[in-house]
């Protein structure tokens, strides 16, 4: 990507992202006090996923990058998800 197109995100957006990350961190911690059984891991992972998405989109500028990069990145995540899913076809049904 050419240097001239470097995108500058304004401070209020960055502050909002930071705020959401802190709130989500608090959520991760506090959710451990509620007994959700096997779902507590799921909940923690979902929150982590949300946080990672925010970091990638804003702090790592994926939101402003070319379409090809977005597609390849999403593809990695999808493949990763499917691989985990299929692996659990073994572990959950043993």
């Amino acid at each position: 990507m050419s240097e001239g197109k470097a995108h500058i995100t304004n401070y209020s957006t960055l502050a909002m992202v930071l705020g959401s990350l802190l709130v989500l961190t608090w959520a991760t911690v506090s959710i451990t006090s509620i007994n959700l059984g096997p779902w507590s891991v799921t909940a923690a992972l979902l929150i982590a996923l949300l946080k990672a998405t925010l970091v990638l989109l804003y702090f790592m500028h994926l939101k402003f990058d070319s379409k090809l990069l977005k597609i390849s990145f999403t593809a990695v995540i999808v493949v990763f998800f499917l691989v985990i899913l299929l692996t659990f076809f073994d572990y959950l049904f043993r």
């Binding site: 299929l86 076809f89 073994d90 572990y91 959950l92 049904f93 043993r94």
Partner: peptide
């Protein structure tokens, strides 16, 4: 020693 579900899926 994989699960049967995994066997037929794969």
């Amino acid at each position: 020693g994989m699960s049967t579900t995994a066997q037929f899926t794969f």
